[in-house]
């Protein structure tokens, strides 16, 4: 392996570490520090604020629903994309990635245009059937599903490709049904990919802001998620509560990162 000279090596190291330190590490550290400016007071105060607690519960509920839906959809679509041939597969596979590059604001607008109860394409019909989507949890769950849609698929598809279908065919030849083959052969081999996908989706779902802001209507105490509370509190000059809530969100996302970093097998060369 050809190496750079020592001074250049130090320069590159300095640039990399310095950039990441000033852009990410120090600022995040400061927020953690602000949270504990007054010991645990900020945290306990935030956790006794009904608005915060309600938002945290709502966030969790929305995120769990979104993850479960994306899990079922993601594993299903992955299997279809890898194990079957059908017309339009390439297009579908490209479209699946689309949500990664669509602005959350556009996601919110798109859902709003279709599902709002006044002049949406589907909204009024759904509402007259007693089913409110926009400004309520279904809309928020949909927005969250949208933004996190490809994450599980992107983890599972490469693994499915890699393991091939030899084992599945062997199981079939031994008399296993489709269902038995899935539960006993396919699922165990994609287990870790699914777990990573779920952790990633969870992190993304808990943190969604723009899309949820639009479809939820941001109604205090009703449709306000944790991220929306951070904005509201900060702009309300309750910065300590904003810091404390942010701290909780940082904690969860870093926990997700650590889980992924430790569970993911080392890249093999």
């Amino acid at each position: 392996m050809v190496d750079v000279s020592t001074p250049v090596k130090w320069l590159l190291r300095l640039v990399a570490v310095g950039y990441v330190f000033f852009l990410v590490a120090w600022p995040v550290g400061l927020v953690v520090q602000h949270t504990f400016d007054a010991g645990f007071d900020n945290l306990t105060e935030a956790l006794s604020d009904e608005q915060v607690v309600g938002a945290l519960q709502l966030t969790l509920m929305v995120a769990v629903w979104a993850v479960v839906i994306n899990l079922v959809f993601g594993v299903g679509i992955s299997l279809l994309l890898v194990r079957f041939e059908f017309p339009g597969k390439r297009v579908l596979s490209a479209l699946i990635d689309l949500p990664l590059s669509v602005s959350p604001v556009v996601v919110g607008l798109a859902l709003l245009l279709v599902y709002n109860g006044r002049d949406g394409w589907i909204g009024p019909a759904a509402e007259s059937a007693g089913f409110q989507i926009i400004f309520d949890s279904p809309g928020m769950i949909m927005a969250t599903c949208f933004v996190a849609l490809p994450l599980i698929i992107r983890e599972v598809v490469p693994v499915l490709h890699e393991i091939g279908d030899d084992q599945e065919q062997a199981a079939r030849s031994l008399g296993a049904s489709t269902r038995q083959t899935f539960w006993r052969i396919t699922l165990p081999s994609i287990k870790w990919a699914v777990v990573y996908g779920v952790v990633l989706s969870l992190a993304r779902s808990l943190g969604e802001f723009g899309a949820v802001k639009i479809v939820s209507g941001n109604i205090t105490g009703q449709t306000q998620t944790a991220t929306l509370v951070v904005e509201a509190k900060y702009q309300n000059f309750q910065q300590q509560t904003a810091y404390a809530t942010s701290f909780l969100l940082i904690l969860v996302s870093i926990a997700c990162l650590v889980v992924v970093a430790f569970l993911r097998p080392k890249r093999t060369h």
Partner: peptide
């Protein structure tokens, strides 16, 4: 350093704004 690189992916965007405001 390797783990910190991923922090911006995992952090809610609104929190990212707040984090940068602090420095």
């Amino acid at each position: 350093l390797d783990v910190i690189i991923d922090v911006p992916f995992a952090l809610p965007t609104i929190v990212a704004g707040l984090v940068l405001l602090s420095l």
